[in-house]
Structures are given as C-alpha cells and as structure tokens.
Design a protein around this nucleic acid. Structure first.
Length: 584
RNA sequence: CCGCCCGUAGCUCAGCCGGAUAGAGCGUCGGCCUCCGGAGCCGAAGGUCGCAGGUUCGAAUCCUGCCGGGCGGGCCA
C-alpha cells in the first residue's frame, strides 16, 4: 500500500512535468512516503511538496495543491489533504484498510513476505566463535541478531545463506589437541602436569574421557616420556606450551596426533552446534578454515593480491598495501617465519564467498573487532570487488545484571556466563527476544531478573501472551458450542467500526512494511518493537470490546480480525526465533 | 595520542537517509475482574534530546568542536 501511494505520487510528478508545471530538466526526487505518526493525519504522509519547493521555486503548499490535482484516482484512497507546512496526507478507504485482514488470513505464514530482495544472494556469517571455548553470552547477541536478520532478509525475498566460520587452523588447535590429550592421560591414570596456558575447561576433561572410551589406551604415553627435556614452565609459559605441543606430536606421530586433534575439534564443535541448535539457530554450513589452508586457497588469494600489485616484501615478511585503500597501515600477510596470518586467511575466505556467487556479504561481528573492518574492505577493493558489497554489522556487548548487580564478563577462566547457562536461567525465548529488542549498535543492559519474570513487565511474555490469549478465545468459543462461521471473504468486516479496531487494522497493514524496512536497513529490532506495539493494541482491544457476543455477524467480524492478529504475531515471533505458544 | 560506537523521562530504550505536539516499557501515584486468561487494561505526573556553535523554511536527526561512557589501535586469534 505504501508503494502504491508512492507510485501515485510519482505519476503525479511526471504528469506535472509534462504539463509544464515543473521544469522539464528538473530532477525528480525519490518520493518519500511515511506512515502518518498521528492518526489525525490520515494513513500515509508525503513530504514531496516541501522537498520540491526549493528547486521548483514554488511555495510548498501551492505545489502540494498542484500535486494533489494531478494524482491519478485510486480505489484505495478516500481523501488527500494538505496540512501543516505542505504535507500531503492520504487517507485510505475503509475497504483498503480492511484488506490486511484478508491478506493475512489468505497468505497465512507468508503474510509479510515480499520480493524486494528477489534476485539477491546474501551470505551472512555470524557467531564464528573460536572453537576452543564454549559459547558465552557475548556470542549470544550475535547469534540472536544474525539469525533474526537472516530470517528477516529471507522474508523480504533475499536468498540467504547462513554460515559459521570455524577457526580450526593454527596454534590454538594444537593447544586444544594437546590439552585434551593431557586430560586423556590423566583419565588413563597418568599423573601429568597441566599447563597454566592450556585450555582449562571442564568440557575438555569430559571429551578426554570420551576419547579414552573410543580409542582405549592407544594414545597413552608415560609421564616420564612426556616430561623428558621440557623447559621449565615458569620462565616462559607460552614457550613451554609450544614445547608440549611439539612433544605430543613427536610421541603420538602424525596420524595419531591428527586423530586426537580431529576428535577434539569434532567434540567441541558438537557442543557449539548443540548450543546453537537449542538456541534455535541453524546454519547451512560450518566453513572450515583448515580446508581453506589445505586446498591452497590462501596461497591463491595471496597470488591474486600480488598479481594486482598490492603486496611487497619488507623485514622478511609479505605485506598487503592496505593503506592504499583507506586502512591506517599496511598489513602482514605472511610472517617472517613463513606462516600466513589470520588476516591472510580472512582475505581468502572473503574472496571465496564472492567467488561462490554471493552478491552481498553480511558479517556480524562483535564490536571489539571494529578495527578490523577497514583492512578486510581494503583487501576486497584491491581484488577489484566493490567494498559496498560487504556489510559488517557490529554488535555491541550486552552487560548482564542480576539483582541489580553487574555480572563479571572477563573471558579469563570461568569468569563468563555461558550461553547455555543463560538459556537455562531465562529460557530461549526471553534470551532471543531481549537480544534483538535493541539496535545492535546500542550498548545494552540485559536484566536477567526481568527476562525470567513471568509478568507483564517482561516484553517477551507480553507478546506471547497476546498470542496465547487469542488461542484461548477460540478455545472458549468452542467450549460454548460456537464457531466463527463466516470465512474471511464473507465476514462482515465493515462492522469493525470502533477506534480499537481501526488501530489493530492499521497495525496489521503495517506489518509487511515493517519487514521490508527491517530488511533494507538490516535492523531486526524493528520487528520486535512492532510486535510489542501490536500486542499492546490487541490487549487494549481485548479489554475494551467483547468478542464472544450474540450478534453473530459482528462476532464473526471481530473473531476474524483477532485471528488475523494471531497470524501476524506468530509470523513476527517466528522471524525472531521466539515461540508463539497456544497457552502459557 | 589516533580511530569507531554510544549519550533522548528517575531506570532501560525506540525515534536518527532532516519534517507536524519527541514516544514506549519499567518505576511512582490513582483507578478497573458477577464479564472471552488480571501474565491484562485505563488515567496522571515525569524532557535544556550531553554541552556549544553551524547548515536549513525546518535539527533529537546533518556538519564542526568540546564533555562523558564503551571498545579498538600486534609479524595474536
């Protein structure tokens, strides 16, 4: 409907130009149509006349008058008024306003979907947490945001691919494998010292036990073999760790070592996958960095940069001329020890995404990675890719509060709340809704007590309750031996004439616009805000007007409206990964 | 020192590609169940939109400079 109004305006402007009421060479502005903020201003408002006033050298209100006279007739528009400094206020016909009910019920779960993104293939990468640790609440917001955004984009017609980038190459994997192996030795009865810089988590111990169960004592070596000739840990903990890794490799041999490493990675990834699954997040693919390395993709990427002429050697390292593309300084691709950097892998990864045919790349990153954005964009530019195609959404951290106290959030051992703990405490629905309620750029306070309270204060329950309440109305109807007899097309929707009904109708009609806007601006929080508004309008309506009444045509009309409301609530909650319960 | 994000009601936040009287929830105060679920509803009080300039017919919104908070600035990942 919004687009319909915009198209009417565009036609009017064209007609004016042809009639000589506007200079022929005048560049027509993009027509902006908004939902009127105040219901007294009709349904839609356009500021076209004011925007044009200056270049057309006419008074806004006069111009508005001309535009109005040139507007083509539309069966959906009842009235167009000129108000304020020169707004054109459009009022829909009652019939057009009721259309959303029919659409919502005919289209069902598809109501709100559009084709604005049709033809676009979007790659969205989110969470991508390092495997060695469990997911914590810092990743939760990225998970909730990324998944909701992906769903919103899908609803807007984009073809969306969800991906998790697994950093399964490099030193941290060796540390993981070695940590797990040491715990395995402990489980096998050996007394071995555990390095301070190893991965301390209890989950490593658990998986070590599983390895012992799966492979038996095949990988057992004695404590004496292990310790022989190792440097002292105190002097250089990191060096000690590297020596331990080397020793593990040496004692196990490449095949067994690889077995332990793969086992550790599989186990940890299994935990992550299970966590995300329980959080309602599914991926199309977990993309392995190691594969990138093993398939020579990193070397290829470096060659591409080299061929483009943006690399050079200095201080024994290979550098990328990032500063030529807006980054602060140049970046190392290959260290003087011959190993490629994480950045090199990321260049290869992004190049791979582009080569897979995605026209848009969305990266959801923690805000602490913001300094990393310019260099990745620089790399894309150097490779001849329009940097606009990469959209990095930075998600700020949420600060957790319990009992009015800030929870410690240090990543150091044990001092963080895991995503699993959060889910156990407040539930999947509350966690996901809270995370996407706010703009991602906004620092947010996450009040655990509020999130788990089963009260009106809790916005999640508020929205879910609206849905459950509608289900309850229909159960009640059935208990009384009644039914909503009229179909959508037969219902006497013209009987819906209260102000409360007008507000609900207005909101139902806005839903597709909200999805479109949320998709275009990549802001899923708009959906959460909308749902709370719709729930509020429904609760108000519910309290003010009885549905199950004797007047059958009116009853059916109201029940039809309420049923459409339920559909839209369910659709919106679905996008956010929040359940829409029948009862609570 | 440099860069990015944020600053809106007592609190948590919408509104930010310039538009009409700056909104919501919580909290506070006062009301509403013989009635479809009170996990709800109605009403009231509450604002120099961090500060100061600038652009504009018009600024919470755009620009500049300050102030305050957060986060970054490795041949770590």
């Amino acid at each position: 409907m919004k687009r319909h109004v915009a198209s009417l305006l565009a036609q009017a402007l064209e007609a004016m130009r042809e009639a000589g009421e506007l200079p022929a060479d005048l560049e027509l502005p993009e027509v902006q149509v908004e939902r009127a903020r105040d219901r007294a201003h009709g349904d839609y408002a356009a500021n076209t006349a004011m925007v044009l006033a200056k270049t057309a050298r006419q008074k806004p209100r006069d111009l508005a008058e001309t535009i109005r006279s040139r507007l083509p007739a539309s069966p959906s528009i009842a009235d167009v008024e000129i108000a304020g400094p020169g707004f054109l206020n459009f009022t829909l016909t009652a019939e057009a306003r009721r259309e959303s009910v029919r659409l919502a019920l005919h289209q069902g779960a598809d109501y709100g979907r559009s084709d604005v993104g049709a033809g676009h293939r979007v790659h969205i990468e989110f969470v991508s947490a390092n495997p060695p640790g469990p997911l914590h609440v810092g990743h939760g917001r990225g998970a909730a945001f990324g998944d909701a955004l992906a769903s919103v984009l899908e609803a807007a017609g984009y073809q969306v691919h969800r991906e998790y980038y697994v950093n399964d190459a490099g030193r941290q994997m060796d540390i993981l494998a070695t940590s797990l192996w040491l715990r395995y030795l402990e489980a096998a009865g050996e007394t071995v010292p555990f390095p301070a810089k190893g991965y301390q988590g209890a989950y490593i111990v658990t998986h070590a036990g599983e390895l012992l169960e799966a492979d038996g004592r095949a990988h057992v070596r004695t404590a004496a073999e292990l310790a022989a000739g190792l440097p002292a840990e105190d002097d250089d903990p990191e060096g000690y760790l590297d020596a331990l890794v080397a020793r593990a490799r040496e004692l196990l041999g490449e095949t067994a070592y690889r077995r332990v490493l793969d086992f550790a990675l599989e186990a940890i990834l299994g935990d992550i996958r299970a966590d995300l699954d329980a959080f309602g997040v599914r991926y199309h693919r977990y993309f392995s960095e190691r594969e990138l390395v093993e398939q020579g993709r990193i070397e290829q990427a470096l060659e591409r940069l080299d061929a483009a002429g943006y690399t050079y050697l200095a201080d024994g390292a290979l550098w990328f001329q990032a500063s030529a593309f807006g980054d602060d300084k140049d970046r190392v691709l290959r260290r003087d020890n011959g190993l490629t950097t994480y950045f090199a892998a990321d260049v290869a990864y992004h190049l791979d995404k582009i080569e897979r045919g995605f026209d848009t790349l969305v990266n959801v990153w923690g805000a602490d990675h913001h300094g990393y954005v310019p260099r990745v964009q620089a790399a894309l530019k150097a490779l001849g890719v329009d940097a606009e195609r990469l959209d990095v959404r930075l998600v700020q951290f949420a600060i957790l509060y319990r009992g009015g106290e800030k929870l410690p959030m240090s990543t150091r051992s044990g001092e963080f709340v895991t995503l699993r703990e959060l889910r156990d405490e407040v539930g999947k629905d509350a966690a996901r809704f809270f995370y996407v309620m706010r703009r991602s750029e906004q620092h947010m306070d996450f009040d655990l007590d509020l999130a788990k309270s089963e009260s009106a204060d809790n916005p999640v329950y508020y929205c879910q309750y609206a849905h459950a309440r509608i289900c309850s109305v229909f159960r009640q109807l059935e208990e009384r031996g009644l039914a909503c007899r009229a179909g959508v097309d037969e219902a006497a929707l013209d009987r819906l004439d209260t102000e409360h009904e007008a507000i609900v109708l207005d909101l139902l009609g806005r839903y597709p616009e909200v999805i479109e806007s949320a998709a275009l601006s990549r802001e899923p929080h708009q959906v959460a805000q909308y749902l709370r508004e719709l729930a509020a309008a429904f609760h108000t309506y519910y309290n003010a007007v009885p549905f199950i009444i004797d007047d059958e045509p009116l009853r059916d009309a109201r029940l039809t409206l309420v049923r459409a409301t339920r559909q839209v609530l369910a659709n919106g909650l679905e996008l956010l990964g929040v359940d829409a319960p029948q009862s609570m």
